[in-house]
Design a protein around this nucleic acid. Structure first.
Length: 448
RNA sequence: GCGAUCGUAGCUCAGUUGGUUAGAGCGCUGGUUUGUGGUACCAGAGGUCGGGGGUUCAAGACCCCUCGAUCGCCCCA
Protein backbone atom coordinates (compact mmCIF):
# COMPACT_ATOMS: atom_id res chain seq x y z
CA UNK A 1 0.00 0.00 0.00
CA UNK A 2 0.95 3.62 0.32
CA UNK A 3 3.36 3.15 3.19
CA UNK A 4 5.33 0.65 1.14
CA UNK A 5 6.58 3.53 -0.94
CA UNK A 6 8.59 4.92 1.94
CA UNK A 7 10.24 1.53 2.42
CA UNK A 8 11.17 1.07 -1.22
CA UNK A 9 14.95 0.90 -1.53
CA UNK A 10 16.65 3.48 -3.66
CA UNK A 11 17.58 2.21 -7.12
CA UNK A 12 21.26 2.69 -7.93
CA UNK A 13 21.70 5.04 -10.85
CA UNK A 14 23.63 4.03 -13.97
CA UNK A 15 27.21 5.29 -14.06
CA UNK A 16 27.74 8.53 -15.94
CA UNK A 17 28.63 7.92 -19.55
CA UNK A 18 27.38 4.34 -19.70
CA UNK A 19 24.49 3.22 -21.86
CA UNK A 20 21.80 0.57 -21.77
CA UNK A 21 20.71 -0.50 -25.20
CA UNK A 22 17.47 -2.12 -26.32
CA UNK A 23 15.67 -1.97 -29.62
CA UNK A 24 16.94 0.37 -32.28
CA UNK A 25 20.28 1.28 -30.69
CA UNK A 26 21.04 -2.36 -29.86
CA UNK A 27 20.10 -3.42 -33.40
CA UNK A 28 22.42 -0.80 -34.85
CA UNK A 29 25.22 -1.95 -32.58
CA UNK A 30 24.77 -5.59 -33.58
CA UNK A 31 24.62 -4.72 -37.26
CA UNK A 32 27.96 -2.89 -37.10
CA UNK A 33 29.63 -5.79 -35.28
CA UNK A 34 28.13 -8.42 -37.61
CA UNK A 35 29.28 -6.53 -40.68
CA UNK A 36 32.75 -6.03 -39.22
CA UNK A 37 33.08 -9.74 -38.45
CA UNK A 38 32.00 -10.66 -41.96
CA UNK A 39 34.30 -8.23 -43.78
CA UNK A 40 37.25 -8.98 -41.50
CA UNK A 41 37.19 -12.60 -42.67
CA UNK A 42 37.26 -11.48 -46.30
CA UNK A 43 40.61 -9.85 -45.57
CA UNK A 44 42.03 -12.75 -43.54
CA UNK A 45 42.21 -10.95 -40.22
CA UNK A 46 42.24 -13.42 -37.32
CA UNK A 47 39.95 -12.84 -34.42
CA UNK A 48 41.71 -12.21 -31.08
CA UNK A 49 40.58 -11.50 -27.54
CA UNK A 50 42.60 -9.47 -25.06
CA UNK A 51 41.82 -8.45 -21.46
CA UNK A 52 39.58 -5.52 -20.60
CA UNK A 53 42.09 -4.40 -17.97
CA UNK A 54 45.85 -4.34 -17.82
CA UNK A 55 48.60 -3.10 -15.58
CA UNK A 56 48.46 0.70 -15.76
CA UNK A 57 52.01 0.66 -17.14
CA UNK A 58 50.78 -0.93 -20.38
CA UNK A 59 48.85 2.20 -21.30
CA UNK A 60 51.05 4.71 -19.49
CA UNK A 61 54.10 3.45 -21.37
CA UNK A 62 52.38 3.64 -24.73
CA UNK A 63 51.22 7.18 -24.06
CA UNK A 64 54.38 8.57 -22.55
CA UNK A 65 54.31 8.93 -18.80
CA UNK A 66 53.93 12.67 -18.60
CA UNK A 67 50.83 13.46 -20.62
CA UNK A 68 47.78 14.51 -18.66
CA UNK A 69 45.82 11.90 -20.56
CA UNK A 70 47.42 9.34 -18.30
CA UNK A 71 46.71 11.24 -15.14
CA UNK A 72 43.20 12.49 -15.81
CA UNK A 73 41.51 10.46 -18.49
CA UNK A 74 42.07 6.84 -17.64
CA UNK A 75 39.95 4.61 -15.43
CA UNK A 76 42.65 3.44 -13.02
CA UNK A 77 42.33 1.77 -9.64
CA UNK A 78 44.31 -0.28 -7.17
CA UNK A 79 43.50 -3.94 -6.72
CA UNK A 80 43.67 -5.65 -3.32
CA UNK A 81 47.33 -6.37 -3.77
CA UNK A 82 48.06 -2.70 -4.28
CA UNK A 83 48.85 -2.98 -7.99
CA UNK A 84 47.66 -0.17 -10.24
CA UNK A 85 45.29 -1.47 -12.92
CA UNK A 86 43.54 0.40 -15.73
CA UNK A 87 40.44 -0.38 -17.75
CA UNK A 88 41.66 -0.36 -21.32
CA UNK A 89 41.22 3.05 -23.01
CA UNK A 90 42.31 1.67 -26.39
CA UNK A 91 43.08 -1.67 -28.02
CA UNK A 92 46.50 -1.14 -29.49
CA UNK A 93 48.59 -1.07 -26.30
CA UNK A 94 47.06 -4.27 -24.95
CA UNK A 95 47.49 -6.05 -28.28
CA UNK A 96 51.11 -4.89 -28.45
CA UNK A 97 51.66 -6.25 -24.94
CA UNK A 98 50.14 -9.60 -25.93
CA UNK A 99 52.27 -9.68 -29.07
CA UNK A 100 55.36 -9.47 -26.89
CA UNK A 101 54.35 -11.60 -23.89
CA UNK A 102 52.51 -14.36 -25.81
CA UNK A 103 55.23 -14.89 -28.39
CA UNK A 104 52.98 -13.85 -31.26
CA UNK A 105 56.10 -12.69 -33.05
CA UNK A 106 56.31 -16.16 -34.55
CA UNK A 107 53.18 -15.40 -36.61
CA UNK A 108 54.44 -12.10 -38.03
CA UNK A 109 53.22 -10.50 -40.12
CA UNK A 110 50.11 -10.92 -38.01
CA UNK A 111 46.72 -9.60 -39.10
CA UNK A 112 44.31 -9.43 -36.17
CA UNK A 113 40.91 -7.95 -35.38
CA UNK A 114 38.83 -7.58 -32.24
CA UNK A 115 36.02 -5.56 -30.76
CA UNK A 116 34.69 -4.76 -27.33
CA UNK A 117 34.29 -2.14 -24.61
CA UNK A 118 36.81 0.62 -23.85
CA UNK A 119 36.82 3.12 -20.99
CA UNK A 120 37.86 6.74 -20.74
CA UNK A 121 37.23 9.06 -17.84
CA UNK A 122 35.83 11.94 -19.84
CA UNK A 123 32.74 14.06 -19.81
CA UNK A 124 30.14 12.48 -22.10
CA UNK A 125 28.85 14.30 -25.17
CA UNK A 126 27.39 13.36 -28.52
CA UNK A 127 28.98 10.14 -29.73
CA UNK A 128 31.31 10.05 -26.74
CA UNK A 129 30.82 7.88 -23.66
CA UNK A 130 32.84 6.68 -20.69
CA UNK A 131 32.21 3.10 -21.64
CA UNK A 132 32.18 2.93 -25.39
CA UNK A 133 32.85 0.21 -27.93
CA UNK A 134 35.19 -0.11 -30.83
CA UNK A 135 36.06 -2.44 -33.63
CA UNK A 136 39.78 -2.72 -34.22
CA UNK A 137 42.16 -4.08 -36.84
CA UNK A 138 45.95 -4.29 -36.70
CA UNK A 139 48.77 -5.63 -38.85
CA UNK A 140 51.83 -6.27 -36.70
CA UNK A 141 55.30 -7.01 -37.98
CA UNK A 142 54.87 -5.61 -41.48
CA UNK A 143 56.95 -2.65 -42.63
CA UNK A 144 55.55 -2.79 -46.16
CA UNK A 145 53.24 -0.05 -47.43
CA UNK A 146 51.04 -2.82 -48.79
CA UNK A 147 49.97 -3.45 -45.20
CA UNK A 148 48.72 0.14 -44.95
CA UNK A 149 46.89 -0.28 -48.23
CA UNK A 150 45.21 -3.52 -47.20
CA UNK A 151 44.11 -2.06 -43.89
CA UNK A 152 42.64 0.98 -45.61
CA UNK A 153 40.84 -1.15 -48.18
CA UNK A 154 39.36 -3.14 -45.31
CA UNK A 155 38.13 0.03 -43.63
CA UNK A 156 36.78 1.42 -46.89
CA UNK A 157 34.88 -1.75 -47.73
CA UNK A 158 33.46 -1.95 -44.23
CA UNK A 159 32.07 1.58 -44.42
CA UNK A 160 30.64 0.87 -47.85
CA UNK A 161 28.96 -2.33 -46.71
CA UNK A 162 27.52 -0.47 -43.75
CA UNK A 163 26.14 2.00 -46.27
CA UNK A 164 27.70 5.01 -44.58
CA UNK A 165 30.38 5.93 -47.09
CA UNK A 166 28.20 8.79 -48.34
CA UNK A 167 29.40 11.99 -46.70
CA UNK A 168 32.40 10.20 -45.22
CA UNK A 169 35.86 10.97 -46.60
CA UNK A 170 39.17 9.24 -46.10
CA UNK A 171 41.71 11.88 -45.19
CA UNK A 172 45.30 10.83 -45.34
CA UNK A 173 48.70 12.16 -44.35
CA UNK A 174 52.22 11.02 -43.71
CA UNK A 175 54.28 11.86 -40.67
CA UNK A 176 57.40 10.49 -42.34
CA UNK A 177 60.06 8.44 -40.65
CA UNK A 178 61.67 9.48 -37.38
CA UNK A 179 64.11 11.95 -38.98
CA UNK A 180 61.49 13.54 -41.24
CA UNK A 181 59.11 13.85 -38.35
CA UNK A 182 61.65 15.48 -36.05
CA UNK A 183 62.76 17.95 -38.71
CA UNK A 184 59.19 18.93 -39.49
CA UNK A 185 58.32 19.27 -35.85
CA UNK A 186 61.25 21.59 -35.27
CA UNK A 187 60.20 23.72 -38.23
CA UNK A 188 56.64 23.91 -36.91
CA UNK A 189 57.73 24.95 -33.44
CA UNK A 190 59.92 27.65 -34.95
CA UNK A 191 57.02 28.86 -37.07
CA UNK A 192 54.56 29.00 -34.17
CA UNK A 193 57.10 30.61 -31.86
CA UNK A 194 57.48 33.31 -34.47
CA UNK A 195 53.73 34.00 -34.43
CA UNK A 196 53.14 33.44 -30.77
CA UNK A 197 51.20 36.69 -30.37
CA UNK A 198 48.68 35.71 -33.02
CA UNK A 199 47.81 32.38 -31.43
CA UNK A 200 44.88 31.66 -29.11
CA UNK A 201 45.62 31.04 -25.41
CA UNK A 202 44.92 27.33 -25.87
CA UNK A 203 47.39 27.10 -28.72
CA UNK A 204 50.12 28.97 -26.84
CA UNK A 205 49.59 26.30 -24.23
CA UNK A 206 49.84 23.56 -26.82
CA UNK A 207 53.08 25.07 -28.12
CA UNK A 208 54.74 23.97 -24.91
CA UNK A 209 52.91 20.68 -24.47
CA UNK A 210 52.06 19.27 -27.87
CA UNK A 211 52.82 21.69 -30.73
CA UNK A 212 51.58 19.39 -33.52
CA UNK A 213 48.09 19.65 -32.06
CA UNK A 214 47.93 23.35 -32.95
CA UNK A 215 47.37 22.18 -36.51
CA UNK A 216 43.87 20.97 -35.71
CA UNK A 217 42.86 23.81 -33.43
CA UNK A 218 39.19 24.76 -33.64
CA UNK A 219 39.84 28.38 -32.69
CA UNK A 220 39.34 30.68 -35.72
CA UNK A 221 42.11 32.98 -34.43
CA UNK A 222 44.64 30.25 -35.16
CA UNK A 223 43.55 29.70 -38.73
CA UNK A 224 45.87 32.17 -40.47
CA UNK A 225 48.97 30.99 -38.62
CA UNK A 226 48.06 27.34 -39.17
CA UNK A 227 47.46 27.89 -42.89
CA UNK A 228 50.90 29.49 -43.19
CA UNK A 229 52.61 26.68 -41.29
CA UNK A 230 55.13 24.54 -43.20
CA UNK A 231 53.88 21.22 -44.53
CA UNK A 232 55.77 18.01 -43.98
CA UNK A 233 56.54 17.39 -47.65
CA UNK A 234 59.60 19.61 -47.66
CA UNK A 235 61.07 17.62 -44.76
CA UNK A 236 60.33 14.12 -45.98
CA UNK A 237 63.30 11.86 -46.61
CA UNK A 238 63.41 10.10 -49.97
CA UNK A 239 62.48 6.84 -48.29
CA UNK A 240 59.52 8.36 -46.48
CA UNK A 241 58.26 10.04 -49.63
CA UNK A 242 58.55 6.77 -51.54
CA UNK A 243 56.65 4.96 -48.80
CA UNK A 244 53.79 7.43 -48.90
CA UNK A 245 53.74 7.25 -52.66
CA UNK A 246 53.33 3.48 -52.54
CA UNK A 247 50.45 3.81 -50.11
CA UNK A 248 48.56 6.36 -52.20
CA UNK A 249 49.16 4.57 -55.50
CA UNK A 250 48.00 1.34 -53.87
CA UNK A 251 44.78 3.04 -52.83
CA UNK A 252 44.30 4.36 -56.34
CA UNK A 253 44.83 0.89 -57.76
CA UNK A 254 42.26 -0.54 -55.35
CA UNK A 255 39.77 2.18 -56.20
CA UNK A 256 39.70 3.69 -52.73
CA UNK A 257 38.99 7.43 -52.76
CA UNK A 258 41.17 9.55 -50.51
CA UNK A 259 42.06 13.16 -49.83
CA UNK A 260 45.36 14.52 -48.67
CA UNK A 261 45.15 16.38 -45.38
CA UNK A 262 48.60 17.79 -44.73
CA UNK A 263 47.37 19.05 -41.34
CA UNK A 264 46.42 15.61 -40.00
CA UNK A 265 48.76 14.67 -37.16
CA UNK A 266 49.24 12.29 -34.25
CA UNK A 267 50.43 13.60 -30.92
CA UNK A 268 52.46 10.61 -29.83
CA UNK A 269 56.05 10.04 -30.81
CA UNK A 270 55.79 6.42 -31.88
CA UNK A 271 53.58 7.25 -34.87
CA UNK A 272 55.39 7.11 -38.22
CA UNK A 273 54.43 7.42 -41.84
CA UNK A 274 50.75 6.92 -42.59
CA UNK A 275 48.09 8.64 -40.49
CA UNK A 276 44.45 8.58 -41.57
CA UNK A 277 40.93 9.40 -40.51
CA UNK A 278 37.58 8.78 -42.12
CA UNK A 279 35.66 11.93 -41.23
CA UNK A 280 32.07 13.12 -41.43
CA UNK A 281 30.23 16.31 -40.57
CA UNK A 282 27.16 14.42 -39.37
CA UNK A 283 28.29 13.78 -35.79
CA UNK A 284 28.57 17.21 -34.22
CA UNK A 285 31.93 17.85 -32.64
CA UNK A 286 33.00 14.22 -33.00
CA UNK A 287 33.84 14.09 -36.68
CA UNK A 288 36.11 11.06 -36.83
CA UNK A 289 34.35 7.85 -37.74
CA UNK A 290 37.40 5.62 -38.06
CA UNK A 291 41.03 6.49 -37.45
CA UNK A 292 44.46 4.98 -37.29
CA UNK A 293 47.97 4.96 -38.57
CA UNK A 294 51.36 3.37 -38.50
CA UNK A 295 53.01 2.99 -35.08
CA UNK A 296 56.42 1.57 -35.84
CA UNK A 297 57.86 2.80 -32.54
CA UNK A 298 55.31 1.45 -30.05
CA UNK A 299 56.31 -2.16 -29.49
CA UNK A 300 59.93 -1.12 -29.05
CA UNK A 301 58.76 1.48 -26.50
CA UNK A 302 57.12 -1.33 -24.55
CA UNK A 303 60.34 -3.30 -24.34
CA UNK A 304 59.71 -5.54 -27.32
CA UNK A 305 61.78 -6.04 -30.45
CA UNK A 306 61.76 -3.40 -33.16
CA UNK A 307 58.40 -4.14 -34.80
CA UNK A 308 56.66 -2.10 -37.47
CA UNK A 309 52.87 -2.10 -37.21
CA UNK A 310 49.79 -0.32 -38.48
CA UNK A 311 46.18 -0.34 -37.35
CA UNK A 312 42.86 1.40 -36.99
CA UNK A 313 39.85 1.52 -34.72
CA UNK A 314 36.31 2.83 -35.03
CA UNK A 315 33.56 3.58 -32.54
CA UNK A 316 30.68 1.13 -32.83
CA UNK A 317 28.13 3.60 -31.43
CA UNK A 318 29.25 6.30 -33.83
CA UNK A 319 29.02 3.99 -36.80
CA UNK A 320 25.61 2.88 -35.59
CA UNK A 321 24.37 6.47 -35.47
CA UNK A 322 25.30 6.90 -39.12
CA UNK A 323 23.34 3.87 -40.31
CA UNK A 324 20.29 4.85 -42.29
CA UNK A 325 17.55 2.58 -41.08
CA UNK A 326 17.77 -0.67 -39.22
CA UNK A 327 14.94 -3.15 -39.49
CA UNK A 328 14.79 -5.57 -36.59
CA UNK A 329 14.57 -9.24 -37.54
CA UNK A 330 11.11 -10.36 -38.61
CA UNK A 331 9.46 -13.49 -37.33
CA UNK A 332 8.52 -16.38 -39.65
CA UNK A 333 5.93 -18.03 -37.43
CA UNK A 334 4.19 -17.05 -34.20
CA UNK A 335 2.56 -19.93 -32.31
CA UNK A 336 -0.70 -19.28 -30.51
CA UNK A 337 -1.79 -22.30 -28.50
CA UNK A 338 -4.89 -22.07 -26.29
CA UNK A 339 -4.81 -24.43 -23.36
CA UNK A 340 -2.24 -26.80 -21.94
CA UNK A 341 -2.79 -29.64 -24.37
CA UNK A 342 -2.36 -27.31 -27.33
CA UNK A 343 0.70 -25.79 -25.69
CA UNK A 344 2.39 -29.15 -25.54
CA UNK A 345 1.75 -29.83 -29.22
CA UNK A 346 2.93 -26.33 -30.10
CA UNK A 347 6.16 -26.73 -28.17
CA UNK A 348 6.92 -29.85 -30.19
CA UNK A 349 6.27 -28.24 -33.58
CA UNK A 350 8.07 -25.06 -32.49
CA UNK A 351 11.22 -27.06 -31.77
CA UNK A 352 11.07 -28.85 -35.11
CA UNK A 353 10.66 -25.62 -37.03
CA UNK A 354 13.48 -23.89 -35.17
CA UNK A 355 15.80 -26.82 -35.82
CA UNK A 356 14.97 -26.50 -39.48
CA UNK A 357 16.01 -22.84 -39.38
CA UNK A 358 12.75 -20.93 -39.17
CA UNK A 359 12.45 -17.95 -36.83
CA UNK A 360 9.61 -18.85 -34.48
CA UNK A 361 8.18 -17.63 -31.23
CA UNK A 362 5.51 -18.59 -28.79
CA UNK A 363 4.31 -16.24 -26.07
CA UNK A 364 4.06 -17.38 -22.48
CA UNK A 365 0.73 -15.83 -21.63
CA UNK A 366 -2.25 -13.83 -22.78
CA UNK A 367 -5.57 -14.49 -24.47
CA UNK A 368 -5.77 -15.10 -28.19
CA UNK A 369 -6.33 -11.45 -28.99
CA UNK A 370 -3.31 -10.38 -27.02
CA UNK A 371 -1.18 -13.02 -28.64
CA UNK A 372 -2.33 -12.05 -32.11
CA UNK A 373 -1.34 -8.48 -31.32
CA UNK A 374 2.09 -9.58 -30.20
CA UNK A 375 2.50 -11.68 -33.35
CA UNK A 376 1.58 -8.69 -35.42
CA UNK A 377 3.94 -6.35 -33.54
CA UNK A 378 6.75 -8.84 -34.08
CA UNK A 379 5.97 -8.66 -37.83
CA UNK A 380 5.35 -12.41 -38.00
CA UNK A 381 4.54 -13.75 -41.45
CA UNK A 382 2.33 -16.56 -40.16
CA UNK A 383 0.37 -17.28 -37.01
CA UNK A 384 -0.36 -20.89 -36.07
CA UNK A 385 -3.42 -21.17 -33.84
CA UNK A 386 -4.18 -24.38 -31.98
CA UNK A 387 -7.05 -24.76 -29.52
CA UNK A 388 -9.21 -27.60 -28.21
CA UNK A 389 -11.41 -27.60 -31.34
CA UNK A 390 -8.38 -27.95 -33.60
CA UNK A 391 -6.84 -30.60 -31.37
CA UNK A 392 -10.00 -32.67 -31.65
CA UNK A 393 -9.60 -32.68 -35.44
CA UNK A 394 -5.82 -32.97 -35.26
CA UNK A 395 -5.41 -29.74 -37.24
CA UNK A 396 -3.94 -26.27 -36.73
CA UNK A 397 -5.06 -22.96 -38.14
CA UNK A 398 -2.37 -21.40 -40.31
CA UNK A 399 -3.01 -17.72 -40.83
CA UNK A 400 -1.07 -15.49 -43.20
CA UNK A 401 -0.82 -12.23 -41.29
CA UNK A 402 -0.18 -10.16 -44.38
CA UNK A 403 -3.17 -11.36 -46.41
CA UNK A 404 -5.40 -12.35 -43.52
CA UNK A 405 -6.16 -15.66 -45.26
CA UNK A 406 -6.21 -18.69 -42.97
CA UNK A 407 -6.66 -22.41 -43.50
CA UNK A 408 -6.84 -25.58 -41.42
CA UNK A 409 -3.88 -27.88 -41.87
CA UNK A 410 -3.20 -31.36 -40.51
CA UNK A 411 -0.79 -30.95 -37.62
CA UNK A 412 1.61 -33.54 -39.01
CA UNK A 413 2.22 -31.30 -42.02
CA UNK A 414 3.69 -28.50 -39.90
CA UNK A 415 7.42 -28.83 -39.90
CA UNK A 416 7.27 -31.14 -42.93
CA UNK A 417 5.78 -28.92 -45.60
CA UNK A 418 7.03 -25.37 -46.21
CA UNK A 419 4.72 -22.59 -45.11
CA UNK A 420 4.58 -21.23 -48.62
CA UNK A 421 2.61 -24.40 -49.53
CA UNK A 422 0.44 -24.21 -46.43
CA UNK A 423 -0.48 -20.64 -47.28
CA UNK A 424 -4.03 -20.14 -48.47
CA UNK A 425 -5.13 -23.66 -49.34
CA UNK A 426 -6.06 -26.54 -47.12
CA UNK A 427 -4.20 -29.77 -47.68
CA UNK A 428 -5.58 -33.24 -47.13
CA UNK A 429 -3.93 -35.90 -45.05
CA UNK A 430 -1.01 -37.85 -46.38
CA UNK A 431 -2.71 -41.16 -45.59
CA UNK A 432 -5.51 -40.28 -48.02
CA UNK A 433 -3.12 -39.39 -50.83
CA UNK A 434 -1.65 -41.67 -53.44
CA UNK A 435 1.88 -40.30 -53.19
CA UNK A 436 1.71 -37.17 -55.29
CA UNK A 437 1.70 -33.77 -53.60
CA UNK A 438 -1.14 -32.80 -55.91
CA UNK A 439 -3.34 -35.40 -54.25
CA UNK A 440 -3.03 -33.51 -51.02
CA UNK A 441 -4.98 -30.59 -52.42
CA UNK A 442 -8.58 -30.86 -51.29
CA UNK A 443 -10.04 -27.78 -52.84
CA UNK A 444 -11.16 -26.55 -49.43
CA UNK A 445 -9.80 -23.05 -49.93
CA UNK A 446 -12.49 -21.00 -48.29
CA UNK A 447 -11.00 -18.89 -45.53
CA UNK A 448 -12.91 -18.64 -42.30
C1' G B 1 38.22 20.83 -14.88
C1' C B 2 35.03 24.94 -17.55
C1' G B 3 30.48 26.91 -20.14
C1' A B 4 25.36 26.81 -22.04
C1' U B 5 20.59 24.55 -22.07
C1' C B 6 17.18 21.34 -19.80
C1' G B 7 14.64 17.90 -15.66
C1' U B 8 6.26 17.28 -15.34
C1' A B 9 2.96 9.67 -16.20
C1' G B 10 6.68 3.80 -18.69
C1' C B 11 8.00 7.14 -23.48
C1' U B 12 7.50 12.08 -26.18
C1' C B 13 5.79 16.52 -24.45
C1' A B 14 1.80 20.73 -23.03
C1' G B 15 0.85 23.46 -18.57
C1' U B 16 -1.02 31.29 -19.67
C1' U B 17 1.34 37.47 -15.85
C1' G B 18 2.22 32.41 -9.59
C1' G B 19 -4.47 30.87 -8.43
C1' U B 20 -9.16 25.37 -6.91
C1' U B 21 -8.79 18.52 -7.99
C1' A B 22 -1.63 18.78 -12.95
C1' G B 23 -3.24 17.45 -18.89
C1' A B 24 -2.54 15.22 -24.11
C1' G B 25 -0.58 11.61 -27.56
C1' C B 26 1.78 6.93 -27.60
C1' G B 27 2.29 2.59 -24.56
C1' C B 28 -0.19 -0.56 -20.76
C1' U B 29 -4.97 -3.13 -18.72
C1' G B 30 -10.07 -4.16 -19.76
C1' G B 31 -14.39 -3.75 -23.07
C1' U B 32 -17.28 -3.31 -28.05
C1' U B 33 -15.60 -9.10 -30.19
C1' U B 34 -16.44 -14.97 -23.35
C1' G B 35 -11.34 -18.05 -30.04
C1' U B 36 -8.53 -13.99 -34.32
C1' G B 37 -3.92 -9.11 -35.26
C1' G B 38 -3.33 -4.65 -38.35
C1' U B 39 -8.24 0.16 -38.44
C1' A B 40 -11.95 2.37 -35.16
C1' C B 41 -14.68 3.54 -30.66
C1' C B 42 -15.37 3.31 -25.06
C1' A B 43 -13.44 2.86 -20.16
C1' G B 44 -9.48 2.26 -16.55
C1' A B 45 -4.80 2.12 -14.12
C1' G B 46 -0.49 5.03 -13.86
C1' G B 47 2.44 11.45 -11.19
C1' U B 48 7.48 12.21 -4.34
C1' C B 49 6.15 17.94 -11.06
C1' G B 50 14.60 15.26 -10.05
C1' G B 51 15.88 16.35 -4.52
C1' G B 52 16.38 20.06 -0.44
C1' G B 53 15.60 24.93 1.32
C1' G B 54 13.42 29.90 0.61
C1' U B 55 9.78 33.96 -1.09
C1' U B 56 4.22 34.12 -0.96
C1' C B 57 -2.42 33.95 1.49
C1' A B 58 -1.04 30.55 -2.63
C1' A B 59 4.81 27.53 -6.26
C1' G B 60 5.06 22.58 -11.54
C1' A B 61 6.07 27.98 -12.54
C1' C B 62 9.95 32.85 -8.90
C1' C B 63 15.04 32.73 -5.88
C1' C B 64 19.26 29.78 -3.74
C1' C B 65 21.70 25.09 -3.20
C1' U B 66 22.19 20.15 -4.88
C1' C B 67 21.78 15.82 -8.08
C1' G B 68 21.17 14.25 -13.03
C1' A B 69 20.88 14.68 -18.41
C1' U B 70 22.06 16.94 -23.12
C1' C B 71 25.30 19.87 -26.19
C1' G B 72 29.92 22.32 -26.49
C1' C B 73 35.21 23.71 -24.61
C1' C B 74 39.77 21.28 -22.81
C1' C B 75 41.58 16.44 -24.20
C1' C B 76 41.29 12.94 -27.94
C1' A B 77 45.50 7.18 -27.30
Amino acid sequence: MAQDKTKRPETPRPIRGTQDMLGDSADRFAHVVDTFERVRKLYGFRRIEVPVFEATAVFARSLGESTDVVAKEMYSFEDRGGDSLTLRPEFTAGIARAYITEGWQQYAPLKVATHGPLFRYERPQKGRYRQFHQIDAEIIGAAEPLADVELLCFADQLLKELGINDGVTLTLNTLGDAQSRDAWRAALVAHFEGHRDALSEDSVDRLARNPLRILDSKDPRDKAVVDAAPGIDAYLSDEAAAFFDKVTSGLDAAGVAWERNARLVRGLDYYRHTAFEFVTDRLGAQGTVLGGGRYDGLIENMGGPVTPAVGWAAGIERLGMLLDHIQSDALDVAFIPMGEAAEKVAVRILSELRRSGLVCEMGYRGNIKKRMQRANDARAKFAVIIGDDELAEDVAIVRNLQTGVQTKQPIEHLGQIPFSLLDGMSLGRAVDATGSIVDLLTGDQAPQ
